[in-house]
């Protein structure tokens, strides 16, 4: 009966993942490997960026007239924020579908999201990346790694660490069923600062991590070290988010740009 319960939990979490995220690894890989009828529009310089802004992300850029006179770096930063906000709302819905999450103290739910969403976001971002670039605008665009590196500092430092993480993470060859459990494990984490009901969250975390372990054994029978490798990725993601939060604070201080209110409340007093 215990194994049956674990399989049910894995299935519930995978279904919640497929239902709540607009993009997933399977869709992203179909686009990145050229198996779609219309390939993504490639953004590789200022000219192609402007074209993409007029078509693919017109809604994001056009939503604020204040962006019209800003330089490319600030406009790209704004688009990154829009995508992050969309993914945070998807992650919130996903979390609510994870069995037990909605029964937690509401303040603990907030804390788990505050500390978990960026780690989850960067883990899922890897699905949209290959060594040459990143899918954007729901898969309709592809921005090259070289172009992102060529932006002026500090913006040029924003994505490169995520590419470096993604290349190592993608070599583990996880599929969406693995990622669903991994993202749930990121969110249901008992050692986030300020949690009230730690034992309740630790019990949830334990069952999700057990299910992840079991699932990896059956889904990747030839890779016996996949589970410990993934546990190490949790540590790497925490470091990646700490550095990202510092960079965002630097940009906020030194650049003439605004930070979305949802991201502001996530970053405030984070680490």
């Amino acid at each position: 009966p215990q194994v049956a319960d674990q399989k049910t939990l894995a299935k519930q979490i995978y279904e919640a993942y497929l239902k709540n995220f607009n993009m997933n690894k399977s869709k992203a890989r179909t686009i990145l490997t050229g198996k779609t009828s219309t390939p993504p529009f490639v953004i590789h310089d200022m000219e192609t960026l402007q074209l993409a802004e007029q078509t693919l992300v017109a809604k994001m850029v056009g939503s604020s007239g204040a962006l019209l006179n800003k330089d490319a770096e600030v406009r790209i930063f704004h688009c990154c924020q829009c995508t992050s906000v969309e993914t945070v709302t998807e992650l919130t819905e996903f979390a609510k579908s994870v069995p037990g999450f909605s029964n937690l103290d509401l303040n603990d739910q907030v804390t788990l999201l505050k500390y978990g969403v960026h780690e989850a976001l960067f883990a899922m971002l890897a699905s949209c990346m290959n060594k040459d670039g990143l899918l954007v605008a729901h898969g309709s665009g592809f921005i090259t790694r070289e172009f992102l590196k060529s932006l002026r500092r500090p913006f040029s430092q924003m994505m490169e660490p995520k590419f470096q993480f993604a290349m190592k993470f993608n070599s583990l060859e996880l599929d969406d069923s693995d990622l669903a459990l991994f993202v749930a494990a990121i969110i249901c984490c008992g050692d986030r600062p300020g949690l009230v009901n730690v034992p309740h969250i630790e019990r949830m975390q334990e069952s999700i991590v057990n299910v992840l372990h079991l699932h990896l054994k059956s889904n990747h029978p030839d890779n016996e070290f996949l589970f410990p490798k993934l546990l190490q990725k949790l540590v790497d993601l925490r470091q990646l988010v700490t550095e990202h939060a510092q960079l965002v604070q630097e940009i906020k201080k030194t650049e003439d740009t605004s930070l979305h209110p949802l991201l502001q409340e996530i970053y405030r007093d984070m680490y």
Binding site: V88, T89, T92, K96, L106, N107, Q109, V110, L113, H260
Partner: peptide, 20 residues
Amino acid sequence: KEKHKILHRLLQNSSSPVDL
């Protein structure tokens, strides 16, 4: 609670979208 009012709102009411 005031510090995280958008997260609170998202958790309590999924049908209220966040402006981009």
